[in-house]
Amino acid sequence: MAGPVLVSPMAFWMVAFFLVPLLLIVLYSFGTQHTYQSTPSLGFKLDAYRRIFTESEYRHAFVLTAQMVVANTVGCLLIGFPLAYFISLKSGKRKTLFVLLVMMPFWTSFLIRTFAWKIILDDGGLLNNWLVDLHMRTRGNPIHLMYTNKAVYAGLIYDYLPFMVLPLFVSIEKIHRSLFEASKDLGAGKWTTFRRVTLPLSLPGIFAGSLLVAIPTTGEFVIPVILGGGKVVVWGWLIEEAFHAGHNWVLGAALSNVLLVFMVIVIALYARAMTSEEAYA
C-alpha cells in the first residue's frame, strides 16, 4: 500500500495540472468562441481546424516549423557529436570540468542567452564590425543575419546543444574501452572503428538527444521572435498570438492540438526507428 500512498501527491498534481488540461484543449478545439468572453462554449465544430488546414498562413508556419525541427536536430547532432566524443574519450582527467562547461549555460536564462546573439548578429553588431575592421566588408554594406532564418537557426542550435551533447556523452561513456582495443587489434583503422563500434553503440544517445531537441523545438516561439523579429512566424508563435492577441481560445487549442499530434508522430517515428535498430543489432 505504501507505494500508491507515497505517489499520490505527485499523481494528483500531474493529473490535475498537466494531464487534465491537456485533455481539455482537445475538447476546447471543437468548441465555439464568443466575442468578449474568454472561455468558449463546448460542442463539436470543426471551424478552427478548417481554418488551419485551408489558410496559407498556417501552411507556411507549419513548413517553417518542420524545417526548424530538422535543422536544429541535425545541427545539434553534427556539432555536438565530436564534442561528446572529445569529452568522453580525449579529455583525460578533466572530464567532469568539460561536462560542467557544457551544462553551465543551461543554468542561465535561455531568454538572455538568445538575446545575446542580437549583439553579435545585428547589422551594426559585433560580427559586422569585425568584418569591417578586417576589410572584408564595407560599413554601409553589412551582412543581414539578424531577423532572418539564419539567426534563428544559430539561436536554436545554441540553446539546444546541451540537450544533445549530454545524452551523447553518456552513451559514448558507456562503451567499454576494451572494444576500441579489440577493434584496433583486429586491424581496424580509426574510421572503421568509428563506423563499426563507436557509432552503432552510441545510437541510444543519438536517439535520446534527437528526441530531447526535436520535441521541444516543435513549439519553440521565443527564439524565432527574438532573433527573427516578426518575419519568422512559427507554429508556437501562432498559438501564443491566438491567446494573447487574438483572444481566440478555440483556435489556440486547435493549433496546440495539431502540434500535439505532430509531436506524437515524431515520437512514434523515433520509437519505430529505435526498435528496428535494436532488432537489427
Binding site: 491537456l22 519553440e220 508556437g236
Partner: peptide, 17 residues
Amino acid sequence: VIAEVIAGVSTLLFFVQ
C-alpha cells in the same frame, strides 16, 4: 519533453475553466 507552450496554454485554459 513536451513543448512548453502546450503545457502553458493548456494550464491557462484549465485554470480559467
